[in-house]
Design a protein around this nucleic acid. Structure first.
Lengths: 140, 140
DNA sequence: ACAATTGCTGCAACATTGTTGCGTTTATTT
DNA sequence: AAATAAACGCAACAATGTTGCAGCAATTGT
């Protein structure tokens, strides 16, 4: 199971024209294995004893993966980025749900985000970021 | 002009059952005078020389104003809260626009946010936070 | 297989934003 | 004016993220 993710991660990274280092592969595997968007800290904790990475290295690897469009960042209100692997389904615009009690963040894929609205004249649209807050199934 | 805002701010604070201190009145005046949501730092810079407040005091005053529903906080992706006075029009759910070049944040009032979507079973809705990103009229 | 090269890593130091504890001052109440 | 509860300022701390630089390692060329 994990070997499969590991191989997938390795391929994705190689196809992106970067060095497939142990750290990057492991980080991407962790994010691929995760259903929800997780923080830098949570990723750090999921790293095995045998492969501890420096905080800075982790930040830089994540930044690199974002640049290669393999993962994406989610803004949260606790001023900590959360990261999530890009899957086909929601590679572009999608929304996130954040539990106000346990801080869990998940992706909402079937959220219709039609642009039934207008920006003021002269304004130019780039992207939309939508977070729904509430209680998750465990906390409600 | 400013006197009028000052008086409005003072009344709002008194009606909220709190102490109408010079700092709180000034902060609320500043936010009432502003069309866009601004950061803690920007508020600090708009304080007159004669009324410099400690960082902590400013944070606490803002927190208090949020609790009294006189202003609201906006999450941004630069991990800095932005604050904006609550006006009738968008006292509850509304969206924000953030310019990706100059970082200006404005409120979008006429954004239809019908809940045409569903949360997973067991999840409970509380609030929605929507930020549209792009270029503002000056930057595009 | 080996050396060169490019880019990745780790360390240390720093920056920014926000929070907590506590003693002092101030706005309001009486 | 005095009492009191609330607000303030200072110092220290916490969390998250960034930058510069020296060294190491994965890839490339031979």
């Amino acid at each position: 199971m994990f070997n499969k993710l590991h191989r997938t991660a390795e391929e994705l990274i190689q196809h992106s024209g970067g060095r497939a280092t142990a750290g990057r592969i492991r980080i991407l595997s962790i994010l691929l294995a995760e259903q929800q968007a997780i923080t830098h800290r949570e990723i750090e904790q999921r790293l095995p004893q045998t492969l501890q990475l420096d905080r800075v290295t982790l930040y830089r690897a994540l930044e690199w993966l974002v640049g290669k469009n393999l993962i994406h960042k989610v803004t949260s209100d606790d001023r900590a980025w959360r990261y999530h692997a890009n899957r086909e389904l929601h590679s572009h615009q999608h929304a996130h749900f954040k539990c106000t009690r346990c801080a869990q963040v998940i992706c909402l894929s079937d959220l219709s985000m039609e642009r039934s609205w207008h920006l003021p004249i002269g304004y130019q649209f780039q992207e939309i970021e939508l977070t729904v807050k509430g209680l998750c199934a465990d906390c409600s």
